[in-house]
Design a binder for these strands. Structure first.
Lengths: 220, 220
DNA sequence: ATGCGGTATATCATATATCAAATAGCGTCA
DNA sequence: TGACGCTATTTGATATATGATATACCGCAT
């Protein structure tokens, strides 16, 4: 008998909004009006308001001076602030994870590297992005540090929407999977420092590919 | 004419609760009952609930399976999870900060190191803790990365309450300010790598002093 | 003494009404 | 035409009532 899982409306609204964020449904700087969202989701304003406030507390949304809540526009400055943090935390995660892989885990990781390569060969940006994320989190989860995983997940939610620009960069397209292979090799060799190094390289290269796409500071 | 700053009840409740957290007013694992807090603060349940949910979203509070909200008890495991993150982020902040100090900033930092030493000489734990925090954040703020500063601030909110145990450790009492002096020297020399290294040492030494005080995993 | 069922109570979650604040729109005046 | 004042409207914030869920307590049967 399957346990009945109760989920509050607030939690469900939160998840729906978060999915919408990930899918880029909400335009940056466009007010997310509580009453409209409530009507759209067929529930009252309260759980919507709670879900929005929660996303604000998680810094995925911001409150403007007129109190409306919006998806922040990614700016060059914010992007530059986030990158060293990602390098630092994701490098740490790769280092912590390195000694925690079973042969089965390694096999899975190998398959992911291959599938990433395949997606790139076919210029399949959408699949690439999904698999890239899967590859990275297959490693970060092995770090065995829930707090760290959560922080990294939050970071990805913030910068995720701009990853779609990665395929615009020819250098990136050609070298993107090199670092994945280097990371994999280091992990297989149990070389935590190397894994950290190549993970940081991967993030650095991606950041350099994306930076030209970042708008100058907000001109709202 | 001073601008009239409007602050919502929800924001004010949030700040009051956060202050309470910092001062250790709320016992770990003791339910924070919305109605009681609302009565105590003289406002309705809604802004209290919002403030609590916000603190949950920031992971400073947790929701138990029975839906009550509590301050999580710091466990050995959580502590061990948080420390490498602190080492990583606060080391990064020290490194980023190193080239951003004016002579006046350095003077201020020097005074703080002296005052920390003074508090230790007088076995003044309370003053020590305040000044220690002030010293650290004087540096982190110089990193010029608001996202990073926020993350570090959050981490300090989580582990802050257990810092009171630092004075219990004789080794720590004797060596605590050594690293501060090393950090200061590195910053004055503009040596970002050294500043990072000594900052990480400082956090590491403090963690080792605190670890014996950490209870085994939750036995609620 | 223990386990079970039912009821009462406590407390969270949600809906709704109302209040508070911001903005839009309109008319008037210089 | 632009600035100002006023009103209406929109939208967030809060209060309150009610629904939903969890827990405590009691009585009864074994």
């Amino acid at each position: 008998m399957k346990k009945i899982e109760h989920q509050s409306l607030s939690d469900r609204a939160y998840q729906a909004l978060k999915d919408g964020l990930q899918e880029g449904v909400f335009l940056p700087m466009q007010p997310m009006v509580i009453r409209n969202l409530a009507a759209e989701y067929g529930i009252s304003a309260t759980p919507i308001r709670e879900a929005l406030q929660r996303l604000v507390a998680e810094r995925l949304l911001i409150v403007l001076p007129n109190r409306s809540i919006v998806v922040p526009r990614m700016t060059r400055e914010l992007f530059l602030d986030l990158m060293p943090i990602r390098v630092s935390l994701e490098g740490l995660a790769a280092r912590l994870a390195t000694s925690n892989f079973s042969p089965k885990d390694l096999e899975k990781l190998e398959k992911l590297v291959q599938r990433v390569a395949n997606a790139m060969t076919h210029y399949d940006a959408k699949t690439y992005l999904l698999l890239n994320r899967e590859f990275h989190f297959a490693i970060y989860e092995k770090a065995g540090n829930p707090e760290l995983l959560q922080l990294i997940n939050d970071l990805w939610l913030k910068v995720g929407p701009v990853f779609t620009g990665l395929f615009d960069d020819a250098y990136f397209r050609e070298h993107a999977n090199d670092e994945h292979q280097n990371i994999l090799r280091a992990i297989k060799a149990g070389d935590a420092e190397a894994a950290q190094h190549y993970m940081q390289q991967d993030i650095d290269i991606a950041a350099k590919a994306l930076l030209p796409l970042m708008p100058e500071d907000d001109v709202t």
